[in-house]
Write a protein that binds this DNA or RNA. Structure first.
Lengths: 147, 147
DNA sequence: GTATCTGCAAATCCTTTGCAAGTCA
DNA sequence: TGACTTGCAAAGGATTTGCAGATAC
């Protein structure tokens, strides 16, 4: 079930070396159910391999993005999060008030993708999209007159 | 036509002071056809009023956001851009390859807003949304085998 | 007069870079 | 061996913060 062959292939095919750091970084990303930040990847890898440096994490992330093995998402926290190709794609409704994140299915945006392609010849990468707004609870809170 | 009354009201009603810095910052935002960054606002205000400091720009932006007078948009450049409430709302298709930005009309996303409200009770703030992907030109370039 | 604002300078946070030493192939 | 990678340390850019002096009301 482990697709290590694919990973190894993808790197070496293209002339990139397979280093323990790269493997551990990729496996940290693949292992996280949620989206993971550079800092979190670093902490996780450093737990087993204290020698790593965060700049290696960033450089590897850059490479994996280029190879299409990892995607970015920006939830508006001032830091980027990462997630592995192959794990399920979905979207996020982020409440601007309380920060709650509601996950929604990929299919919710598929008709939008079609419209953008038809009308603008634009191929939207809607793998992980964050949509900001207000959740039901916070709207109630507001209409009650809270801050 | 100038709605200075509204601005003044909005600030003083809520107990905030009306300072020249705040007026100039807001007018810089309102005056920019495009979205404007903190650095650009600063440069523009500093041209007439060399004494301002960029931290005042950031603090004012924070306040204007809180009052709903200014909105943010993140085009993925590593810096946030701002824009005034009241100027036309629209969305952006950002090409990940060449950086081209295609502006699209607000109505393109209105059915999405409805779906999110109906299915998730989430009130999406779709004022300025950036959607990433690839434009027609860059797709052609790619299929021709360029990097 | 006084609480709110501002300017200044320094700090913080995330990310990137230069370079010499280390390592995969 | 030799080019690709890494660790380290320092730089970078955007944004935030502490504080004392300035200012709107």
């Amino acid at each position: 079930m482990q697709e290590t062959g694919g990973i190894v292939g993808r790197l070496s095919e293209r002339g990139y070396r397979l280093t323990p750091q790269r493997l551990m970084i990729l496996s940290a990303i693949e292992g996280s159910r949620d989206h993971i930040s550079a800092e979190e990847i670093y902490a996780q890898v450093a737990a087993k391999y204290p020698h790593v440096n965060i700049s290696t994490v960033y450089r590897t992330l850059e490479l994996l993005k280029k190879l299409g093995m990892v995607y970015e998402i920006d939830l508006g926290e001032g830091r980027i999060r990462y997630h592995a190709e192959g794990s399920g794609h979905h979207h996020h409704l982020v409440c601007q008030d309380c920060g709650t994140v509601i996950d929604i299915d990929e299919s919710t945006l598929s008709s939008l993708r079609d419209v953008l392609f038809r009308d603008y010849a634009f191929r939207a990468e809607l793998r992980h999209v964050a949509i900001f707004g207000f959740c039901r609870e916070c709207r109630k809170k507001k209409s009650r007159g809270g801050e």
